[in-house]
Amino acid sequence: MNFYSIRAIYKFEMARTWRTLMQSVASPVISTSLYFIVFGSAIGSRMVAIDGVSYGAFIIPGLIMMSLMTQSISNASFGIYMPTFSGTIYEVLSAPVSALEIVIGYVGAAATKSTILGLLILITARLFVDYQVQHPVMMLAFLVLTAVTFSMFGFIIGVWADTFEKLQIIPLMIITPLTFLGGSFYSIKMLPEFWQTVTLFNPVVYLISGFRWSFFGVADVHMGVSLGMTLVFLLVCMLAVWWIFKTGYKLKS
């Protein structure tokens, strides 16, 4: 392992975060606060409790997951897209670093950033709703696993995209619908039976459900299944990244 190289990439990426602090941290926190005000306080006060959890508290894990996923993707995809766009990628490609080290640097930084963000939202939520985390260790595990998985997914998108439009299209057209339909704001048990079955094909359901379980001890699908599925997505993304570096896909001609 080339520790100095990993640290250089990681530090460089984190420096980008601090430079764009407003945009990378403040704006997701503000938008989530708005969700809490609208859904949690205004609408939530008229909703019945779900599985014994007040609606305001119920949406916390969903909202965190939603931000975590979109932010992980946008951080990581932007992190690798910009060097390929500006041409500075030549330096990383000509450096004595392995694919694994490059991925640890870029994905690690993106995941760190979105994990911090997730925790910030968790703290912000406290201002609006009272909640407890029953399984804090599992909560952190889900948080980090999801951040890493989606950062890796973002890395793949960043390599694949050769225009800014492509960079935006996957998060916009696929991830946003999947998170909205994945039970961020409702329990999938509230859906008609047919749609419940359809929903089970949505990977985001497992992430949100598992994460929610770590808060309240109740879940749409069994926590073990959630954890298993999360690990499967991680593995799929790792395989895709491995393939990218093995073939040099879009990185090297």
Partner: peptide, 16 residues
């Protein structure tokens, strides 16, 4: 947006 010093230090680290 990077500084000259930061950029050159990054390169050194990147090369191990």
């Amino acid at each position: 947006f990077e500084s000259v010093w930061g950029s050159v230090s990054f390169s050194r680290g990147l090369f191990g």
